[in-house]
């Protein structure tokens, strides 16, 4: 689904990530971990073709990223941005419908399938009762769900999620993670998820750790999510409870 070869990403004079090789297969859920400023967002932007990489090759669905048209890419790959502008003129339903942009076939307004996809996406994130409400009146968490719903309406095969759980309450964090897992397991999509919550990272199949100095580690979650590695990554002491997908990590104060 996603192939990365020798990808180097820089920010100013810093090399965030050097010669990254990565292969993400359909049905795989990846957690991307790292400290603040370690290049997680920059990496996602580079994979989505939103920012240029210093070197390397990216293929999406076996096709070089550079050969996609923007609209074609929008049907295959979707990205949840960590930050976006808060202003939007319309209702929540208008906002979610914009996710159908790369699929739109009609020059005037949306087709029935577009509207159905938007309604399904609204339902998935418990947003149906708010559909007619002006986007500007939504709370931070509701907006986060609206962005997720927009991405679900877009329905790409490769999901790049930059901190999808931010602003969400506990129930909606769980619900979002379950929806991501269902999309990956059930619908054969692949997802790269930037997370700071290690409990959720343990529910992913594989982990990519970015050190922020060019070094990285990629591998099975069970292998990489070890207290020593996490202490090394985050620079604080970590204690583990349980193991495997049920593990919990708590910083030692």
């Amino acid at each position: 689904m996603l192939g990365v070869e020798q990808l180097t990403i820089t920010a100013g004079s810093r090399t965030l990530c050097r010669e990254l090789d990565l292969a993400v297969a359909p049905g795989e859920l990846w957690a991307v971990l790292g400290c603040n400023g370690s290049g997680k967002t920059t990496l996602l932007h580079a994979l989505a073709g939103l920012a240029p990489a210093a070197a390397g090759r990216v293929t999406v669905a076996d096709k070089p990223l550079a050969t996609y048209s923007r609209r074609e890419l929008g049907r295959t790959l979707g990205i949840l941005l960590q930050r976006e502008d808060q202003e939007f003129w319309g209702t929540l339903a208008d906002y979610v419908l914009l996710g159908r942009y790369p699929h739109a076939r009609s020059l005037f307004g949306w087709n029935a399938p577009d509207e159905e996809a938007a309604v399904r996406a609204l339902g998935a994130f418990d947003l149906k009762p708010l559909a007619a409400q002006s986007y500007g009146t939504l709370s931070g968490g509701e907006r986060q769900r609206a962005r997720l719903a927009q991405l679900w309406a877009q329905n790409p095969r490769l999901l790049l999620l930059d901190e999808p759980l931010q602003h969400l309450d506990l129930r909606h964090q769980l619900q979002t993670l379950e929806l991501v897992r269902a999309a990956v397991r059930g619908a054969g999509k692949a997802a790269l998820v930037v997370l700071h919550d290690l409990t959720f990272a343990c529910r992913c199949d594989r982990v990519l750790m970015l050190r922020g100095d060019g070094r990285y580690a990629a591998g099975a979650a069970a292998e990489l999510l070890q207290p020593e590695r996490l202490e090394d990554l985050y620079g604080c002491r970590v204690r583990a409870f349980g193991n495997g997908p049920d593990a919990h990590f708590i910083p030692v104060i």
Binding site: A48, G49, L50, E84
Partner: peptide
């Protein structure tokens, strides 16, 4: 919605 967001949507 902003240039970055528009590109992410396929514009």
């Amino acid at each position: 919605l902003g240039a970055l967001k528009a590109r992410a949507l396929g514009v």
